[in-house]
């Protein structure tokens, strides 16, 4: 527990800043909705004819004039990018920072096993991700209420659940990479999150590479699918968890016997 609490303490500033930034951007978007709705008119078809651009963000299958359609696209992107990057940064630095800041010598010469360090640090990653998502969801409900719209609870909660799972998957991958790094490289984490994001966009645009949907976690976060199915795609989700578990297993295996850099 000590290491877990220590990590929460060390990470609290960054967690607050990321949470506040994501909430701020989400709220600005939500507050833009009333004006957007009145300009679009009842059918909300303005964005339906931008071809590939429309498809890239799933806008061909969502009504931009409804709260959930608008929320799914605008806010989904904010949460997908912001949350994804936060999870990537957190995961990639969690283990590697000990060697980068040369505190590993301090930590591992105390009678704590590597396994305990791995478990408690992973728990700290997950706890921070959950904290961020719960807070963001809460504020986004409040935001929708503040513009006088009805809250589409089912779709909204499903969407946020999907992004939470996405962040867990990305964090697990980056945690694995972190175990291999000698000196923390946060750039790699962000690059990885962005790569997955763009893979999904490409898969949206081109039918030839639809298989990429089985690779990227952004596939099960597709707002158009969630709104239309009123459910999450269980195949993608199970695959996502399987990838995350495999990544963690590889990362643990490495770190348990790693030479700690001086």
């Amino acid at each position: 527990m000590k290491i877990f609490l220590q990590e929460l303490k060390l990470g609290r500033k960054s967690l607050i800043i990321w949470t506040a930034s994501i909430i701020g951007t989400l709220l600005i978007c939500i507050w833009m909705f009333p004006q957007m709705k009145s300009e679009l008119g009842p059918d909300g078809s303005l964005f339906e004819n931008f071809g590939a651009f429309t498809a890239a963000f799933g806008m061909d299958r969502l009504n931009f004039g409804t709260m959930i359609g608008f929320y799914g696209i605008e806010c989904g992107n904010i949460l997908g990018m912001g949350g994804g990057m936060f999870a990537a940064l957190l995961g990639i630095s969690m283990l590697a920072k000990e060697e980068k800041d040369r505190t590993a010598e301090f930590l591992f010469t105390h009678p704590v096993s590597r396994l305990r360090v791995l478990n408690e640090k992973l728990a700290a990653v997950m706890a921070q991700i959950i904290l961020l998502n719960v807070t963001v969801t809460l504020f986004s409900v409040l935001g929708i209420l503040s513009v006088g719209e009805a809250v589409p609870f089912r779709e909204l909660l499903l969407m946020h659940a999907a992004y939470l799972i996405l962040q867990i998957e990305i964090a697990a991958f980056c945690y694995c990479v972190s175990a291999y790094l000698k000196r923390g490289n946060v750039g790699a984490g962000i690059g990885f999150a962005l790569l997955l994001y763009f893979i999904n966009i490409i898969a949206n645009i081109s039918a030839d590479v639809k298989f990429l949907k089985y690779v990227t976690p952004y596939a099960y976060c597709e707002a158009a699918d969630i709104v239309n199915d009123k459910a999450l795609n269980s195949t993608f989700i199970i695959l996502g968890f399987a990838y995350a578990a495999a990544a963690l297993a590889v990362g643990y295996r490495k770190y348990l016997h790693k030479d700690i850099a001086a």
Binding site: L10, R102, E105, F106, T109, H110
Partner: peptide, 29 residues
């Protein structure tokens, strides 16, 4: 490890912590 006191040559610690907190953390571990 419980029987050892180790002082590394570089002596690097978590920068954002206070000295007292770090010393307590070490004992806690």
């Amino acid at each position: 490890l419980p029987m050892i006191g180790y002082m590394p040559s570089e002596a690097m610690f978590y920068g954002s912590m206070r000295v007292g907190e770090l010393i307590r953390y070490s004992a806690d571990l």
